[in-house]
Amino acid sequence: MPLKKAVIVPGNGAGDVERANWYGWANKEIKKIPDMTCLLRNMPDPVTARETIWLPFMEEELKCDEETVIIGHSSGAAAAMRYAETRKVFAIILVGAYTSDLGDQTERKSGYFSRPWQWQLIRENVSHIVQFGSTDDPFLPWEEQEEVAEGLKADLHKYSDRGHFMNSRFPELIDVVKKFKEAA
């Protein structure tokens, strides 16, 4: 299947996603890639980011499918992983991915962390998995980021100076999308 679309799934609480972090910048950059489109939308239930609301939105509104790379940041990475447990997608790019509710009430209410991760199913449903993580992330323990990388056998891009990837530009992400497009 060819790669035709990227969908950026933001972290919870991002507000206006066009202006949050690197999302709007990446959306514009991906659209410059020949024969690629990119979707970036304000998500429903943006604070709690409930799985029961986000996954149907990703399927029905954003139309994530076998020609889609899902770019998930933070809770968007959790959504991308859960989505890929039961649906085929071209690729997932996980930015600031983690495995537990981190002892946080809102994270617990999201539903993503209520059961074990199905690493094998995700690997079977996704052709390419890339993960970006930083050891200095103020919210996510490095051990959980490593657990995702090991469980998914992801191509891990490890940094020590990116925090929670809340910068306004993210050129390495665009490089990965371009590589996926060329390989498709």
Rank of each mutant, 00 (worst) to 15 (best):
V95Y: 01
G103D: 05
D136K: 07
T68L: 05
A14L: 03
P141V: 02
F139P: 06
G13L: 03
G13F: 01
L102P: 02
F132R: 11
G11Q: 04
N12K: 13
G76M: 03
I92F: 00
V176C: 02
S114Y: 06
L3F: 02
R123H: 04
D35P: 03
I92D: 01
K158E: 14
K31E: 15
P56K: 06
F165V: 05
P138E: 10
P171V: 11
R169C: 09
P2E: 13
A97V: 08
F139C: 09
A154S: 15
L94Y: 05
Y83A: 01
V7C: 04
K28Q: 15
K153T: 07
Q118A: 13
Q105Y: 10
P10D: 08
R82M: 10
G11I: 03
L40F: 04
P46K: 01
T52P: 02
D35N: 12
R162F: 12
F170Q: 09
I174T: 09
A184T: 15
E85V: 06
S110D: 00
E146P: 05
W119T: 12
V130M: 07
E143Y: 06
K5V: 08
E18A: 14
N42M: 06
T48N: 03
L152D: 09
E29T: 07
A183V: 13
F90L: 07
N27F: 11
D104S: 09
A183P: 10
A20G: 13
S100M: 07
F132Y: 14
L102N: 02
D175E: 15
V47H: 11
Q131S: 08
V176D: 02
G151Q: 01
W25A: 09
E147L: 10
P56R: 09
A97C: 11
K153R: 12
R123L: 01
R41P: 05
C38Q: 00
I129G: 00
R169I: 13
D161Q: 01
F170G: 02
Y98D: 12
W25P: 09
V69C: 06
Y98H: 13
P56V: 06
R19P: 07
Q131P: 06
G76W: 01
N167S: 14
S134T: 10
E29L: 08
E172P: 07
E59T: 14
R41V: 08
E67H: 14
E85L: 09
K109P: 02
E18C: 10
Q131L: 10
Y112I: 13
V69D: 09
M166S: 14
D65W: 01
A79D: 07
L40G: 10
G163Y: 03
E150W: 10
P171N: 13
W25F: 09
F180N: 01
L152Y: 04
K181G: 08
P171M: 12
G133W: 07
E18Y: 11
K179I: 07
F132T: 12
G133A: 15
S114A: 15
T52F: 01
D175P: 05
P56F: 03
G96M: 00
M36Q: 03
K109M: 11
L62W: 08
L121F: 08
G76D: 03
T135V: 07
R169E: 15
F170M: 05
L156M: 15
A84L: 09
E66W: 04
